[in-house]
């Protein structure tokens, strides 16, 4: 991987990765750190990352960093809930819906939230999510099913507003 190829990856995946991490951690500064560390590791291990696998590698590293961050946060006494929501640019009609959905997502366990984000935000297959998170495919399906059921129960008729 050359510098040019690496920079292409930054342009292509930085936003996706940031959304995933931000939604998972709900901490703007921590999310930036995780994204920065993920790209740093991509560059450091550029010789061992196969062509076309850069995105999966980035999400795998980011997921591990998220898990580490959550564990550290839990040991310190729980979340400080420094949720920094990004400014909405042209998405005004979704403000209320976004807040409802965000609250519902925030209420999910960390693991379930991350799996749903990988599935819905980035369209990963259950198998790919398993590779990123280190879970088996049936485990991924179980966690996501439970997350969707919980969201459904919390949001009620969510299909009508999304």
């Amino acid at each position: 991987m050359t510098e040019i190829q690496y920079n292409v990856c930054v342009d292509a995946y930085a936003d996706h990765l940031f959304r995933f991490v931000l939604k998972s951690l709900r901490d703007d500064d921590a999310a930036k750190d995780v994204v920065q560390d993920s790209f740093l590791r991509l560059w450091e291990n550029r010789e061992s990352v196969y062509d076309g696998k850069e995105k999966s590698y980035l999400f795998t590293i980011a997921y591990r960093l998220i898990v580490d961050h959550v564990r550290l946060r839990d040991r310190k006494g729980g979340s400080d809930d420094r949720l920094t929501r990004m400014e909405s640019h042209g998405g005004g009609e979704y403000d209320n819906l976004s807040e409802i959905l965000s609250e519902a997502i925030d209420a999910l366990p960390d693991l379930q939230r991350s799996l749903v984000l990988l599935r819905d935000y980035d369209g990963y297959s259950y198998q790919e999510i398993g590779e990123i998170t280190g879970l088996s495919e049936p485990q991924v399906k179980v966690y996501i099913f439970r997350a969707r059921t919980a969201l459904k129960q919390k949001l009620g008729a969510l299909e009508n507003i999304i």
Partner: peptide, 12 residues
């Protein structure tokens, strides 16, 4: 099924 929609306005 409740599905999350990407938020393209959230950028690094």
């Amino acid at each position: 099924m409740p599905r999350l929609e990407p938020e393209p306005w959230v950028t690094y």
